[in-house]
């Protein structure tokens, strides 16, 4: 498996998606149930609410060499916890600008509101985000830890 994956390292875009349990994770579920096909280079982390996504999580993801990070949550007004996504919207604004100032391409971080009924939107988001990140190429922060030995791997 390791040999195979390495050959198209340049092509292989790595995206990490943080999905809120109630809307976007459910939207991703619906994309699955509906068999909407999308690129396989996204791994997702389920959280209860996007409000719990600390900017540190995003920094960590980029630090670890992710080429793109997606945050997806309930539409404003739909939050299962009433207002958790308000904070997401605010924190995102700051985070995006900060990364931009440091020189990480803006397109590598995305915030989307995806409801539990928007299976197609979720698939679309993954498709378009993958395209966008692919166009940017592997993250300039990638490869920093590549040499590090992986415990047990």
């Amino acid at each position: 498996m390791a040999e195979e994956s390495k050959k198209n390292d340049e092509e292989d875009i790595r995206i990490l998606a943080f999905l809120c349990n109630w809307c976007s994770y459910a939207g991703a579920d619906l994309a699955g149930v509906s068999r909407f096909q999308y690129p396989p280079n996204v791994l997702d982390v389920r959280v209860m609410c996007t409000g719990t996504i600390s900017p540190y999580f995003v920094i960590k993801a980029f630090q670890e060499g992710m080429d793109g990070v997606l945050i997806a949550g309930c539409h404003i007004g739909d939050c299962h916890y009433l207002k958790g996504n308000y904070m997401t919207a605010k924190r995102f604004q700051v985070l995006r600008e900060a990364l931009k100032f440091l020189g990480l391409e803006e397109g590598r971080l995305r915030l989307e509101w995806v409801s539990a009924a928007e299976g197609e939107k979720y698939a679309d988001v993954i498709r378009s985000f993958t395209e966008e990140v692919k166009a940017l190429g592997p993250s300039p922060l990638r490869g920093k830890k590549a040499a590090k030995a992986e415990v047990g791997a």
Binding site: M1, R14, L16, T52
Partner: peptide, 20 residues
Amino acid sequence: GFRSDQIFEQIEAAASAWRE
């Protein structure tokens, strides 16, 4: 159940898996 260290580990796992 969703402590940052747990999520950091998930992120590391995703990244390290990709690096394999």
